[in-house]
C-alpha cells in the first residue's frame, strides 16, 4: 500500500490524478460545511440575484432562480460519487463471480454465462440505460440500477479472460493436486491474481460511470430537480449559451475534472500494479 502510493507519487500525472480525486472526495463529503450557500442544494429561490455572472459573492455565478452554482456543484459531487461507488460496488462482484466461474469451470457453464454476457454487451450501454429509465421512474436509485445493469458484463469479460489464462498456470494444477475444491481454487487461488486488473478497472470506471450518470440526468432521466446534479445543471443552462455561459461551463468543467482525475489515477495504478490493458 505504502509502496504503491510512493510509486504513484513519483509520476506527476498520477499524482495530479490522486490529488484531484482526493479534492473531489473531500469537497463532496464536506459540502454541507464548506459550501458558501448550504441551502442552495434544494428548492431555494432568490430572484433578486438570479442569473448573475461570477462575482466575489458567487464565485461561479448564480443560476436561473438565483442559487449559487459553486455550492450546487459541491453537492452535485455527492450524487456523482455516491452513484459511482454504489454502481461499482454492485457491478464488480456480480461480474467478477460470473467471470470467474465461466473462466475456471469452462464447458457448459462458460457457454451459458458468457453468451448471456454477450447479449448485454451487444446492446449499446446508454440505450439500455435509457430504455430502463423509460420504464422505471427517474430517481437516483433507478439510475444506479440502470447503470449497474449495463456495467457488470464488462467485469465478467475482464475476469473471464484473466481466469482463462490463470487456469492453465502451474499453481492451479498444484492446488488441484493437493485436493482443493473448485470454489477454493476459483476464489482463493485465481481471484487474487485478477485483483490488480479489477482495481485498476474500477478506478478508471469511476470516471466513466460519472459521465454516463451525467448523460442520463442531462437527458432528464436521472436525479430530478431541485436536487443538484452536474448533468441536469448543464442541461438547464444549455439553452442560455453563450450569454449565460457560467450556467453550463462550470458544471461541465466539474464533470471534466472528476473524469480526468479518476482516469489519471487509474492509469497510474495500472503502471504500479503491472497491468497492461
Amino acid at each position: 500500500m505504502i509502496r504503491t502510493l510512493r510509486i504513484l507519487a513519483g509520476n506527476p500525472l498520477s499524482l495530479l490524478g490522486l490529488l484531484l480525486v482526493c479534492l473531489i472526495t473531500l469537497a463532496a463529503i464536506l459540502a454541507p460545511w464548506i459550501a458558501p450557500f448550504p441551502t442552495h442544494n434544494g428548492a431555494v429561490v432568490d430572484f433578486l440575484n438570479n442569473n448573475r455572472p461570477p462575482s466575489a459573492q458567487n464565485w461561479m455565478g448564480t443560476d436561473l432562480v438565483g442559487r449559487d452554482i459553486f455550492s450546487r456543484i459541491l453537492f452535485a459531487y455527492q450524487i456523482s460519487l455516491t452513484l459511482g461507488v454504489v454502481v461499482l460496488a454492485i457491478a464488480t462482484p456480480i461480474g467478477t463471480i460470473i467471470g470467474l466461474l465461466a473462466g475456471y469451470l469452462g464447458g457448459w457453464t462458460e457457454m451459458i454465462l458468457m453468451r448471456i454476457v454477450d447479449v448485454f454487451l451487444s446492446i449499446p450501454p446508454l440505450v439500455l440505460a435509457i430504455a430502463m429509465m423509460g420504464v422505471l421512474e427517474p430517481t437516483l436509485t433507478n439510475a444506479m440500477l440502470a447503470v449497474t445493469a449495463m456495467w457488470w458484463p464488462w467485469y465478467a469479460r475482464l475476469v473471464y479472460s484473466i481466469a482463462r489464462g490463470e487456469r492453465e498456470e502451474g499453481y492451479v494444477l498444484a492446488a488441484e493436486v493437493i485436493g482443493a475444491g473448485a470454489t477454493h481454487i476459483a476464489f482463493r487461488e485465481i481471484l487474487p491474481n485478477c485483483l490488480p486488473a479489477i482495481i485498476t478497472k474500477m478506478t478508471l470506471d469511476m470516471g466513466f460511470v460519472i459521465i454516463i450518470a451525467s448523460s442520463l440526468s442531462f437527458l432528464g432521466l436521472g436525479v430530478q430537480p431541485p436536487t443538484a446534479d452536474l448533468g441536469s445543471m448543464v442541461a438547464e443552462g444549455a439553452r442560455y449559451l453563450p450569454d449565460s455561459w457560467w450556467l453550463t461551463i462550470f458544471p461541465g468543467l466539474a464533470i471534466l475534472i472528476a473524469v480526468f482525475g479518476f482516469n489519471l489515477l487509474g492509469d497510474g495504478l495500472r503502471d504500479v500494479l503491472g497491468e497492461d490493458e
Binding site: 498456470e169 502451474g170 499453481y171 494444477l173 498444484a174 492446488a175 487461488e189 487474487p192 491474481n193 485483483l195
Partner: peptide, 11 residues
C-alpha cells in the same frame, strides 16, 4: 512438477 516457480501462487 516440472516448474517449481509457477507451481506456487504468485499472490
Amino acid at each position: 512438477f516440472q516448474d517449481p516457480t509457477s507451481s506456487l501462487n504468485p499472490m
